[in-house]
């Protein structure tokens, strides 16, 4: 098992290396290069652009630029003042030493920008996922236990529809309903806020935080709720007709225990694996939700970076995204082996 994990980790490192080259090439081969977005706001004269290029090391061959991005340039002489003479040591430490450079947009270190955004995304997404699973699991179980009942029929139909609802549209509709149409009867204000994490300028209150969570969580959770309830229903149906459940009943095990301890536990194994595989996609959806609800998280950061061609930020989020996928895949495989003793890796 240890050997398996070590091998997978080695593969992961190789894959990350490969992907970082792909990302770097994509970003730098774009028309206009990384500076295309730099001067969008102001007009910069050509000699200033040339100086900026020298200062940022963008006049160097692509390979050199990649090496600098990876390991930094504090070991080589670079042209910091842009006068055409490489006379001082660089200050960049490279991605391998946790330096993703500076954002073109805010001039802040990229890692600091990301550090400010990650907690907001984690906060929103963990609650979204909790809500999705907390509803999907009981609904899926009941639906399977009462197969072909009106409840099952309703749930199956709704789940099918829920999967066809684009979350970005759902977000807009929720704003129309809960911000435009429905009003708080006592104050006449919109029933729920349409964006942000909290009311700016208002003192901290849990009620205010919760009110800001409702719409983004609903918009983000519905699709996954539909997906997992459908999945758990069929996973439960697979388990429910197996012989060991009949044996358990024959031994006089109470029905509750049969369902929750014997059936559900086994039905949850594929769900947990699937969940680990889905994690990157769930977080990917944050781009839409955070954009619609002006939620200052990673998704919004990436969206803004793409709009303004903020390449250091784009590179960093892409690398983190790929890393997240690789780790989730590994986690899914390991969880599967851990939860199902029949699975062995070697």
């Amino acid at each position: 098992m240890t050997q398996y994990i070590v091998r997978r980790l080695a593969q992961a490192v190789a894959m990350m290396f490969l992907l970082s080259i792909v990302f770097f090439a994509l970003v730098n081969l774009a028309p206009g290069g990384p500076l295309a977005g730099y001067g969008n706001a102001r007009r910069i004269p050509a000699h200033e652009v040339a100086r900026l290029k020298r200062q940022l090391g963008l006049d160097k061959p692509m390979l050199v630029q990649y090496v600098v991005w990876l390991v930094g340039n504090d070991w080589m002489k670079v042209d910091l003042d842009g006068d055409g003479v490489a006379d001082s040591y660089g200050a960049r430490r490279g991605v391998l030493r946790a330096d993703f450079g500076y954002s073109f947009r805010t001039r802040q270190p990229v890692l600091k920008e990301i550090g400010q955004r990650v907690p907001n995304t984690l906060y929103l997404m963990s609650i979204t996922l909790f809500v999705a699973l907390a509803i999907a699991i009981p609904v899926g179980v009941i639906s399977a236990l009462k197969q072909y009942s009106p409840f099952d029929f309703t749930v199956t139909t709704l789940a099918f529809a829920g999967q066809a609802l684009p979350d970005f549209w759902l977000g807009l509709i929720l704003i129309i309903v809960f911000y435009v149409w429905l009003r708080n009867p006592s104050t006449g204000e919109p029933l729920l806020p349409s964006g942000g994490i909290y009311t700016i300028g208002a003192p901290f209150s849990i009620a205010d935080r919760l009110a800001h969570l409702v719409l983004p969580v609903m918009a983000g959770a519905l699709g996954w709720l539909a997906w997992y309830s459908r999945f758990l229903r069929s996973s439960m149906l697979d388990v429910i007709h197996q012989d060991y459940l009949r044996t358990a009943r024959a031994k006089g095990v109470p029905e509750r225990t049969v369902i929750f301890k014997h059936a559900l536990r086994n039905a949850l194994i594929p769900l947990i694996t699937l969940f680990a595989l889905d994690l990157p996609y769930i977080f990917g959806g944050a781009v839409f939700i955070e954009m619609i609800f002006s939620w200052p998280g990673m998704g919004l950061l990436y969206y803004q970076a793409a709009l303004q061609r903020d390449y250091p930020v784009l590179m960093a989020v892409l690398v983190i995204g790929a890393l997240f996928i690789i780790v989730s895949n590994l986690l899914a495989d390991l969880l599967y082996a851990y939860l199902d003793p029949r699975i062995h890796y070697d």
Binding site: M15, L19, L26, V27, G284, V317, L318, F324, I325, I326
Partner: peptide, 12 residues
């Protein structure tokens, strides 16, 4: 392994 939505946005 590509974060497909992010790459899609970048390419777009």
């Amino acid at each position: 392994t590509l974060p497909s939505l992010l790459v899609l946005i970048l390419l777009g």
